[in-house]
Amino acid sequence: MKTDIILAGVGGQGILSIATIIGEAVMNEGLYIKQAEVHGMSQRGGSVESSLRISSDPIYCDLIAEGTADVIISLEPMEALRYTPFLSKEGWIITSSNLFANVPNYPEAEALKAELANYPNVILIDVEGLAAENNMKKSGNMILLGAASKALGLDYALLENAIATVFASKGAEVVEMNKKALAIGVENAK
């Protein structure tokens, strides 16, 4: 198997927490992984992106070529669209529908929705709404990961175990909440 993923969002939203869980899951499965991220100045409220590549064969390149990404996972709809030149023809876009409008002339929600409708495989999910509804405001990223889990081609149990390992130091309650968030994501991606 080989899955090339672009993680996108706005600096501070925590796209790397999603990468950490996928990374942990992939390591335990004995798969190869490469994940390129950008630190530094671009973190401060600007667009941020990370390329995450997983494969059963060795991976050389840290970056993903244009037109070849299998999945774009984004915490923000305009950020999801920013990276569509990297998407493959039948690639998936899984994005939060919640806008982060910190620039002037930010597009209307409807315009973004209409633009996303041009792509064949899109899951638009109200991460913040679901998180608030289920009283798990800090677990929004795991809801999004749940929604993307099918497209990633990884076993659900692998992701659950990875959550258990990564959040272990924060206690059983946090682990359970994040597992529940993952399940809510899966449920709402249908």
Partner: peptide, 12 residues
């Protein structure tokens, strides 16, 4: 896919 026209730059 071409870059979407609705996307604006988001500087830090």
């Amino acid at each position: 896919y071409e870059k979407s026209q609705v996307v604006l730059p988001r500087p830090p």
